[in-house]
Amino acid sequence: MSERVYTVVPAPRREAIRSMAKRGERVDGRKPEEFREVKLEVGVAGNADGSARVTLGHTKVIVGVKASLGQPFPDAPNAGVQIVHAELIPLASPIFEPGPPDENDVELARIIDRGLRSAPALKLEDLAVVPGKQVWRVFIDIYPIDHDGNFIDASGLAAMGALLSAKIPKVTAAPDGTIVKAEEKVPLPIADIPVFVTIAKIGDVLVVDPCYEEELVMDARITFALTRDNHVCAIQKGGRGSFTPEEIERALEMALNVAPRLRSALENLRQAGAPQSA
């Protein structure tokens, strides 16, 4: 499958993709409002407390969750800690270079962090073991491993999949403040299941879930994180172009339409524990 990956689309190809978009066509045969097929597997990294791999077209993202006991943040002494980290590693694409996280890594991590936090996905207040002293610190590490566009939505799904499948030791705090970890493991306290939906603007056409080539030719993108009850819990516009307010409202409607299908794969995880696909 290894076609040459380019970072600049040749002008004729760019024009072809843009004029196809005008006719309502896309490079991979999808309709403008069509999300690619999603495959969600959990338990892909046995030493993590929770893990998931999402396959979205050729895009693949692995997320691992590790929880450890530690100090709370001083401004939220009675709540657990959520830390999201993302790294666009050179394994995933020739366009990624080794080195410290750049703005793209940071932006990806922070979008996912805001969506999970605002929903909220985790009941952070239930993760305080000894309020003010010892809380669960939940690390969510995002690693894209193959790049065919739309890392945000794939990372969001994988992060939620990893959180839903995670099991942490049941702990009890003795009156003297010592903490006893039991053999028994319990799931993380989950309040909501947000999903992320990204819409790209190509010319004046809006398409959901852009693939890599579409990302290269798009003018701009906008991502909505959506809660179960259809609240918007994070927004992020990206790219060099702009949107009219009407386009933003239309993009939000497209996102609301595809969100339930994406979430159904995650909802299934709450009962099962086996690999899921949607």
Binding site: A119, I222, Q236, I248
Partner: peptide, 16 residues
């Protein structure tokens, strides 16, 4: 035209 848009918190579609 909108050139930056971000959000955290919870908003309904009408609020957006």
């Amino acid at each position: 035209e909108v050139t930056l848009m971000q959000a955290d918190g919870r908003f309904t579609r009408e609020e957006v």
